[in-house]
Design a protein around this nucleic acid. Sequence first.
DNA 1: TATGAATGAGGGTTCATTCAT
DNA 2: CATGAATGAACCCTCATTCAT
Lengths: 201, 201, 201, 201
Amino acid sequence: MSKVDENKRKKKGAITDSAFSLFIQKGINATSIADIMQKAQLAKGTFYLYFKDKYEVRDYLVRKKAAQVFDKAKIALEQSNVKEFEEKILFLVDHILNQLNDNKLLLRFISKNLSWGIFRNAIMNMQMDENSPNAEEFIESLFEESGKQYRDSEMLIFMIIELVNSTAHSVILYKQPVELDELKESLYPIIRQMIRSFEIE
Amino acid sequence: MSKVDENKRKKKGAITDSAFSLFIQKGINATSIADIMQKAQLAKGTFYLYFKDKYEVRDYLVRKKAAQVFDKAKIALEQSNVKEFEEKILFLVDHILNQLNDNKLLLRFISKNLSWGIFRNAIMNMQMDENSPNAEEFIESLFEESGKQYRDSEMLIFMIIELVNSTAHSVILYKQPVELDELKESLYPIIRQMIRSFEIE
Amino acid sequence: MSKVDENKRKKKGAITDSAFSLFIQKGINATSIADIMQKAQLAKGTFYLYFKDKYEVRDYLVRKKAAQVFDKAKIALEQSNVKEFEEKILFLVDHILNQLNDNKLLLRFISKNLSWGIFRNAIMNMQMDENSPNAEEFIESLFEESGKQYRDSEMLIFMIIELVNSTAHSVILYKQPVELDELKESLYPIIRQMIRSFEIE
Amino acid sequence: MSKVDENKRKKKGAITDSAFSLFIQKGINATSIADIMQKAQLAKGTFYLYFKDKYEVRDYLVRKKAAQVFDKAKIALEQSNVKEFEEKILFLVDHILNQLNDNKLLLRFISKNLSWGIFRNAIMNMQMDENSPNAEEFIESLFEESGKQYRDSEMLIFMIIELVNSTAHSVILYKQPVELDELKESLYPIIRQMIRSFEIE
DNA sequence: TATGAATGAGGGTTCATTCAT
DNA sequence: CATGAATGAACCCTCATTCAT
């Protein structure tokens, strides 16, 4: 990578880092481009050389941050010796819930701005590491290694993600209607049921 | 009601009607108070006699509109002759999904702004009609009439609502990952399972 | 006084009391008519039945409050047994300075808004008590009882008042350039000199 | 100075000139930032690149204008051949009174907004000219060259300034209680007395 | 490329004043 | 007389965006 390109990458990183920090702190509406660039220690006009507006930055960040969360869970799973398909899925869910519980501002940011469309198109195909499969391939391989047949695996994943995401939002941010531990007690059996009901016998 | 009070009620109605129409058309961010009051044919300053800011209007509207949707489903259920508890819940879900499918802008508005906290505290206790039980009492009576015992009925309702709401949002607005009919085919069996798994034998 | 008139007097009193309290607390600019009437527990529209605008209230209050300060000093002098003209003037000055030092907000209010014109035309002629001479007559009588002749007594009073008022403002409110006690040490000899230099031998 | 900096200096000048003209014409309360910028032929938003609010402009202008008045008197004194200390002080007072009499709007502006604190901290230390002493050094040198000892020279200056400023305000603006010439006849002897009474024999 | 001064439209909000009740 | 809801002009201030340097 040329020196010029390297410099540009650094600048872009400075802008997104600054933006992320402000977005989760004050919210997107209350964050101005001037704010972002001041924190990034760059001139206001420079913003427009990299992004069209702050919503482009937001979308970029939602994708990146959500993918990072998933990737961490994936790596943890790979380093564990969980063998069963059902256990693997629950391992991933649990790891993600714990991550979000440890970083509530990140949860708010992702949860408010993440749709299945973004998840499906951006995150599942994001290449985090050259030598590693992307999320889609990874999940596909989970299904394959399960030794079982599942009808409509995408729908299964979709439902699990939506249920986890929406209940987590309420429970972690507002502790409503219960605390996280209590949610898990009800949630995990249901996820197991969901998986089994998608199994083809 | 005095003439003055009647007039105030009318004005408040004009403001919220105008605001709702603009919120679902252009979104809340893009709607200014000037916009709202112009459409309502009232002076800008009048807004502040009724609301603190547009977010107070939004919250008011989310509560009201969501309660209306639920109330319609409730009335339809009462007029039907569905007898089984499980069928009743699915009747309600189905009715609500159909309503939202018929009014996608309303779905976007409610879905984006509705939290369990609001639902729990505002909608469940909203009195829609003098002679009719509110949502909370209504749901309670459903459980009672079921002839069965359920552990943690609130958690059950919470999970159903979150799952329905979040999957509906994606499916109805973006047809992702599937169309509504297909979602129902997967969703309803899962809801049945959820209900049964909360049943105390 | 009729019941109606009595009622009107009460309302006017409530308005001016409320206004005074707000003027010295937040300043005149930051005080709105709505503020005044809210604190007075009267309707906004009622204000205009009594005053044209808040500046009319201010002028009314400056006159009244300044006259009260002077009157207190005058009464104290009458109850003392100071005999010498020069001593009497210094007694008045000292009493007034002490009053203002004890009520700095009052000082700020009076000092900022009092001009010689107002003092001359309003305060000197204000009748505080039916059986008592007004300020002008009182001062005149001081000159007469002095046993001495003074050229241009008005100019003498004018200069003393302006010097006292302007130095007091800086010293009492900002302690600049010195504290009040130190000011008095320099000020009183100068006032004595001023009086003597207006004496006709 | 760079072209950009030169331009900024010009803009700031245009803003303060415009503001001064409006402040003395209509008063500060009645002058809006929109007014100032329209007269300055600049965009409204530009104001905030230079000042926080109009009160910051006012303070800036009070200092600058008062310093200019004093500086003019100082230069005139230096060009005269007045030798005596007492005469020098009176020369300065007289020169300043004449300047203010010639520009009544300026007098109103300065007199209403000038406090001893501002005078002491801002004006006395303002550098009007590279090769010339500031006001403080200048007055100090007057005391030193006088050949006499004065106790508390600051207090002496403070009292003279307050007396001159407050009487001038009333006399020049409202001709009350007398005209300027008449005031001078009473004022100057008193100032002479004040100076002598601060002299250490 | 990068800068940051300048723009001016447009936002929220306040408030003196009116007037039907 | 007294009320207070309604008005809408006018205010301050922010901010995305441009563009000369």
